[in-house]
Amino acid sequence: MPHKTHTYTHRGQSRILEAVIGAVIIFLVFTASYYLIQSSSSIPTQETADLNRLGYNVLHRIVESDTIEETLETQDSTSGAASLQMVVREALPQGIYFNLTVYNCTGNPQTPFAPNPVSVSNAPEAEMAKSKEVSSTSTTYTSKNGNIYLIILKTARAGQG
């Protein structure tokens, strides 16, 4: 009899242990699922898509309104870049960081990344690099004077770094 009682006690304890382990496993599965669903938000993808559309809209405005001719081609490089920065800043909504780089690849379109490009930005140092999402849009533009430019506009939402 004492041996039987001892066996029943062991069986009972093992069932309790099974139930506890089962509960812990179920709890862990639910917790893991909960956090996985939360972190799989599609916001970042949509944000980049928005910035891409905005970037192409601003590039379109820059090239359609002869801004390149009136800034980089008629002024010296310093004042031309300052004017270009002002135009881009006015074209973008507030709260957007930008970095616009203009490569003059006239006569050498096969290697468009010519040295010493004109680059203007409104972002503090390294702020673009810290941003979670940076959109990059580009266009090739031939000015009325026959110069060929590769224009790359990078945009990011401020306060994401």
Binding site: G22, A23, I26, F27, F30, T31, Y34, I37
Partner: peptide, 18 residues
């Protein structure tokens, strides 16, 4: 009983963020 209660709470709160 506790497993059922915890499961039902989690299931009801899980779709809210998504």
């Amino acid at each position: 009983f506790f497993i059922l209660v915890a499961s039902s709470t989690m299931i009801s709160s899980m779709p809210q963020p998504s």
